[in-house]
Design a binder for these strands. Structure first.
Length: 110
DNA sequence: CCCGTGACGACAT
DNA sequence: TATGTCGCCACGG
């Protein structure tokens, strides 16, 4: 039942994010072809909470590498999870962001 | 069918 | 450099 919505597309891409790497909403939106609708990506994540399998939304940050979603995870849970995967996080901001940045439009491109 | 919503991004000042 | 405003578009009610 290919009732796949824009959200499902986002989830697929997010689940492709390798451990220890992060990406931005804009990068995902760009990969999906809706670069102007980066908001839709974030909006999709809000509904990803009950998706199966769970979506590593904690690996998705904004363009600045800032853990904007941590507010939704509750506490510093997001930073802790990223840190657990080897991602350096400081003050809700990913250190060496460009170093751990994983761009689907590049990594999955061909 | 119309309106509001929203985990962002780029541009203007 | 920092802050403010607009645009983007899919989904739910």
């Amino acid at each position: 039942m290919p009732d796949l919505t824009f959200y499902d597309l986002v989830y697929q891409v997010v689940r492709l994010i390798p451990k220890g790497r992060v990406t931005s909403y804009g990068a995902i939106a760009n990969y999906l072809g809706t670069k102007g609708s980066s908001r839709m990506v974030g909006y999709a994540m809000q509904a990803c909470g009950r998706e199966q399998p769970p979506v590593p939304a904690h690996r998705v940050v904004n363009r600045q590498g800032l853990l904007t979603a941590k507010f939704h995870f509750g506490g510093d849970l997001m930073a802790e999870m990223l840190r657990s995967e080897g991602v350096a996080v400081k003050d809700d901001q990913v250190q060496d962001f460009k170093n751990v940045f994983w761009d689907p439009s590049v990594e999955l491109a061909m």
